[in-house]
Design a binder for these strands. Structure first.
Length: 217
DNA sequence: ATCCCGAGGG
DNA sequence: CCCTCTGGAT
């Protein structure tokens, strides 16, 4: 993307959605962290379906530890990777109690030290719960960054660094959600809907052959 | 590079 | 059937 197009690109996404929010359901910072961990390689809708009941019973680390691994599995069995996620969420909850007084730390290194929490999850929590100007690069943002040319890269970290450098103020705070929602509903992996994309004039990407799902990237 | 892994869509 | 979904640990 041409440098001059970056500002209008975000201005247009911002105009359509001034205060974008996560579509994950949560009731406090702890449940946000849990929901984000559960969302790995899963849809928000699927996570919300499972956490609706879970978060009625459990809203803090102590209650989660009391529920236990098997108890948690019973709630999240419909989510992919549920065995690993259940182990991680219980271990993570114990770590919060033992090392952070039962609170979610507002610190990248402390977050990434938690079981099942990597850079992407830490970035989401830092952005939503603590207001930091992070840009978590998930599958959507990795794809949108590369297609638009906002920030190309072979790894999520490379794309994240490129985005942080490319995105101007005042767009850094919400860029994460604008890009993810754009990727989820318009710049879709299999069938990007360029014909109704509001920022296509700033983007060179065109799906080559839509036959058999070859989208061209 | 591989494994983990259910639900929904095409 | 195959692909995708707000990844992380080994």
């Amino acid at each position: 993307m041409a440098k001059a197009d970056i500002e209008p690109f975000f201005a247009r996404l911002a105009a359509a959605n001034p205060e974008p929010e996560t579509e994950l359901d949560y009731v406090n910072t702890y449940t946000l962290l849990v929901a984000v961990v559960l969302s790995a390689q899963a849809t928000d809708a699927g996570v919300n379906r499972a956490t609706r009941r879970l978060f009625q019973e459990v809203q803090d680390p102590a209650a989660m530890v009391a529920l236990g691994v098997e108890g948690l599995k019973a709630h999240i069995r419909t989510i992919g990777l549920f065995n690993t996620k259940a182990e991680n969420v219980i271990a993570l909850s114990k770590a919060l109690i033992e090392k952070h007084g039962g609170e979610v730390p507002a610190d990248r290194d402390a977050l990434e030290a938690l079981p099942g929490v990597g850079r992407k999850t830490a970035n989401v929590v830092l952005n939503i719960a603590f207001g930091e100007e992070t840009c978590a690069v998930d599958t959507h943002i990795f794809r949108v960054g590369n297609r638009t040319g906002l920030a190309r890269g072979k790894t999520p970290l490379a794309v994240e660094k490129g985005l942080m450098k490319a995105i101007p103020q005042p767009y850094r705070r919400h860029a994460h959600h604008w890009l993810i929602l754009h990727g989820r509903y318009v710049c879709k992996a299999r069938t990007p809907e360029c014909w109704r994309c509001t920022v296509s004039e700033y983007c060179r990407f065109t799906p080559k052959t839509v036959i058999r799902g070859v989208s061209g990237d």
